[in-house]
Design a protein around this nucleic acid. Structure first.
Lengths: 230, 230
DNA sequence: AAAAAACTTGACCATTTGGTCAGATTTTGG
DNA sequence: CCAAAATCTGACCAAATGGTCAAGTTTTTT
């Protein structure tokens, strides 16, 4: 009864975060394996450029097996996207709980950079979807993510109001923090070519980028003394 | 003699900037028309996702006509990419001629933002290529662009040395200026969804972004007084 | 105006690729 | 241990797509 199975996969991917559903061992392991392979392939070839055959090869499984678990390439792609959206949302929780502006912002930037370093493929799949016009995640962008931004920019605005940081355009600041951090995953090819890293960016590169971004943001917010000159 | 024609197209696309080569009127007009259509389609569907049929439809020409002028989809794509690289390089000239750090940086940012606003599709095609790992433009990145960055970051470093601006990581600053400006083209779908712009970003949005970026960069470089607080 | 060159295009083809399926094998529940 | 459920997979198929071509039409050249 393949159809039934299919549906189950989809439903579970939705409330996957809820808990270890009553998936069989084999099912669970294979789904994870396939999604991992798919994320990699989608990141490097885009949706249309990725073939189910290539995903199957990456996962070391016959192609029919991919279709057994996910039905269509589109459904597999959406499952991968959903997974990434969850990851994003969880990384968003952070900002604003700590009450110290400088520490809060620094910590948030560090968290985002760690994500870029740890899951660059996820970032690229997401970036690709947005460049294409975000046809599949528009509702997520204009509801959850929009709300999150409004909530967090309100916190920044409050801090500004209270004179605890300099006046800034809080929403654009958030946007710019996002892309400065994500670009180190998305555009790694460009930065490593320019920096002459023949084997991709090194951990040190991520550290330097993190420091540069924190410096930029804290100075923008007037949270560090006027930068010294020679 | 289609083959011969093909070669000619390719050569001319290379030294296209040189001048109005001895192309026939019809040829010139059609090539321009096809490339314009192709840029749009490639931007919204990526290389693999774009079909020559879709490009033909966008250009209002029969598909065979596209192949008559460009031979293969790959060659058409490279022609479009080359064009974009030229555009990029020309936008790079600017930085550093003016001798005032604040004015120079502001002007550079304004120029980049204008490009994002005027040619968003070009930016997206380029971004897409880089996310995919830049297979076709690696040599450009690691030669011309690398040299440009080294030259310009040296200017910034000199200014820092002379105490004319605060100490910053000059290369990362350049990288971050690039992405902050380009993201307003590349990720337009995301920003407009979050900002609740149902019909895409408006001119005012670009102005606000420009100001936000200039503020960030000048504060980072200590080129404006310590930002005031309430 | 006639020949040559350039351009146009409908019809066609080979390959790629997403997806199906039926029969075989393995795992699981009782 | 056995039947039912789940999993596996090679072989296949239909549709989409990049690319070709030959027979025309238009433009340019002389």
């Amino acid at each position: 009864m393949p159809k039934t199975n299919l549906c189950r996969v989809m439903e579970e991917s939705v409330d996957q975060a809820v808990e270890g559903n009553a998936q069989g061992r084999i099912r669970k392991a294979n789904i994870e394996r396939i999604m991992k392979a798919a994320e990699k392939v989608f990141a490097s070839s885009g949706f249309r450029g990725s073939t189910t055959a290539a995903i199957a090869a990456e996962a070391n499984l016959p192609k029919a097996n991919i279709h057994y678990y996910f039905g269509t390439k589109e459904k597999l792609y959406r499952a991968v996207l959903d997974d990434i959206v969850d990851l994003w949302l969880s990384s968003f929780k952070g900002l604003g709980e700590n009450d110290d502006p400088a520490a809060t912002l620094s910590e948030y930037i560090r968290g985002k950079m760690e994500l870029s370093q740890r899951r660059p493929e996820a970032s690229r799949v997401f970036a690709n979807e947005i460049i294409r016009g975000a046809p599949r995640i528009n509702s997520y962008l204009s509801t959850e993510l929009k709300d999150w931004v409004e909530e967090k920019s309100a916190i920044l605005d409050k801090w500004i109001e209270q004179g605890r940081m300099a006046s800034v355009d809080s929403k654009r600041l958030i946007f710019h923090i996002w892309i400065m951090t994500q670009t180190w995953a998305d555009f790694e090819a460009q930065w490593s070519a320019i920096l002459g890293r023949k084997n991709g960016l090194e951990p040190l590169d991520f550290d330097m980028a993190t420091n540069a971004i924190i410096t930029t943001v804290l100075r923008t917010c007037g949270l560090v003394p006027l930068p010294p000159r020679h």
